[in-house]
Design a protein around this nucleic acid. Structure first.
Lengths: 175, 175
DNA sequence: GGAAAGTAATCTGTCCAACAGACTATATGC
DNA sequence: GCATATAGTCTGTTGGACAGATTACTTTCC
């Protein structure tokens, strides 16, 4: 009896959000798999996936400060410090004084960093294709679009704003 | 705003994929937000989100063994041990000897566990709705479907099989 | 029937990564 | 110039993940 109740609850969906959170489970599974695959793709970078995300954000989004970068990736600021230490040590990123605010550091990629990221980006793209290989290309594009939309919409106020700032920074400050 | 428009934004960049992994970032942001919201929704459960996932999986999926449960959620088996200890301590779950294999324990929810989960499930559903509130209902459904499909497809062999086993267990094992 | 190998769960010890909190240096506002 | 806020760093603590050994039981194969 009790088991039957369970089965019923499980399939008895009022509005599609039937059995316990599909959302949470799917996100967790996908992210876990994404991690292991990208971990492999970022083998040349310090700090594995973490490192990839940092380098990628710096190059592609150019957040204006260390703090903005941390906020964008949801990383603690104290953690960001030693992450960047390693990147500087590997000659992938540099910290430069921001002339307009001497407390802040502008994080800029080195040439080496850019080149390496390009390689890794390619490997990551391939890994992601494999990860989503069960979806036809059309659905894959739809999923990515929906995900990005949902993520920017769901980000706790400040993250998308940060991205916007970052983008404008790219435009105004590129040399 | 439809999926197609979003897709355009996503693929908007000059050289196509010059955008670092949208996938990884989106998944991470969404999961992080999902976590904080569900953390709040599961305040009555031991172990927060973790606890919710465990209880939810036990009730809705009824994995046959502790190990299967752990595999489904991507949790280490040694961790599962003390997670379940707490649940037993709170009278939410029970470990019962599996008569057909006396090494294994069947994890079954108590009445209390079921009731509590029902409450929490409701709160979680609400939290998820809010999380995706920027998507129109149609897109929301599409996203969930695509996510689930992608996740089951991407799960390292054994996880969906485990779910299948679990479901059949629900059907065959009556009390 | 019984040794050998395999599996479910547990227990133990180790390690690392996250976070809070204090601290330095700048900035901004009154 | 004093008060308050912010960027970044450093330090100490803690919890959670994981590897490895252990116990109990099952399966296999001779």
């Amino acid at each position: 009896m009790t088991t039957r109740e369970a089965a019923e609850t499980a399939t008895h969906s009022p509005q599609g959000s039937s059995h316990g959170s599909v959302l949470g489970w799917s996100l967790a599974v996908l992210l876990r798999e994404w991690n292991t695959r990208v971990e492999d793709a970022s083998r040349d970078l310090p700090q594995g996936v973490r490192g990839y995300q940092v380098l990628s954000a710096v190059v592609h989004e150019a957040p204006p400060t260390q703090a903005a970068l941390a906020a964008r990736l949801g990383i603690d600021r104290t953690v960001m410090t030693y992450l960047l230490d390693k990147f500087e040590g590997c000659d992938l990123l540099e910290r430069k004084q921001d002339p307009s605010d001497r407390r802040a550091r502008r994080i800029v990629p080195t040439e080496h960093g850019r080149r390496l990221l390009a390689e890794v980006d390619a490997r990551v793209a391939k890994a992601e294709d494999e990860l989503l290989s069960t979806l036809p290309p059309e659905d894959r594009r739809a999923l990515l679009a929906l995900l990005e939309h949902a993520a920017t919409g769901a980000a706790p106020a400040g993250e998308d704003r940060c991205a916007a700032v970052a983008r404008s920074a790219v435009l105004t400050r590129e040399e």
